[in-house]
């Protein structure tokens, strides 16, 4: 099943964790086989991505109370973010490093779309399925997000200039 690699990649983007991503894809495959009778045979990748998204949402709903009981989870995440920023500050400015930083600083909706389309290689329609938003929303977030990255490159003097 060639879709498993795409599913795992997108799951990794959604969960940011290898073990959670594997669990999420496993649950997705089980749900897909349960629902196989209702699948019309067209666009299997989009169908599986929709199941992946719904499974991810359901898993998060179940997890939320655990997070509330474990406030350290949120603190740990914040520590990681701060630690990354400190590391980034010491990295020599370069095109790729600047883009990575710019991506990390984007607001969540813009970053998610860019990760799905540019990093994971999904089409607009597939990203829309995963995020459960209209394709037009994917396009506008993508364009605005990339525009912000481009602005940052401009400010850093790394964007090509015509004059």
């Amino acid at each position: 099943m060639p879709e498993i690699e795409v599913l795992l990649r997108v799951a990794r983007s959604l969960t940011r964790n290898d073990a959670d991503a594997e669990d999420l894809v496993q649950d997705t495959l089980i749900r897909a086989y349960k629902a196989i009778d209702r699948f019309d045979g067209r666009h299997p990748r989009a169908w599986l991505l929709t199941i992946l998204r719904n499974t991810h949402i359901n898993r998060n709903r179940r997890r939320r109370p655990e997070l509330l009981r474990d406030p350290g989870g949120a603190t740990r995440h914040m520590d990681e973010v701060v630690s990354d920023e400190v590391t980034d500050a010491s990295v020599e400015a370069s095109f790729d490093a600047e883009i990575e930083k710019a991506l990390g600083e984007l607001d969540e909706p813009f970053r998610r779309v860019i990760e799905l389309v540019d990093v994971d290689g999904l089409s607009y329609a597939e990203a829309a399925e995963v995020l459960n938003v209209p394709t037009g929303t994917v396009m506008s977030r993508l364009h605005r997000g990339r525009g912000r990255i481009r602005d940052r490159l401009d400010r850093a003097g790394l964007a090509p200039r015509s004059h």
């Binding site: 790729d96 883009i99 990575e100 990339r146």
Partner: peptide, 8 residues
């Protein structure tokens, strides 16, 4: 930008 993101 797209190439750099894909490399990530």
């Amino acid at each position: 930008i797209k190439l750099s993101l894909a490399q990530q």
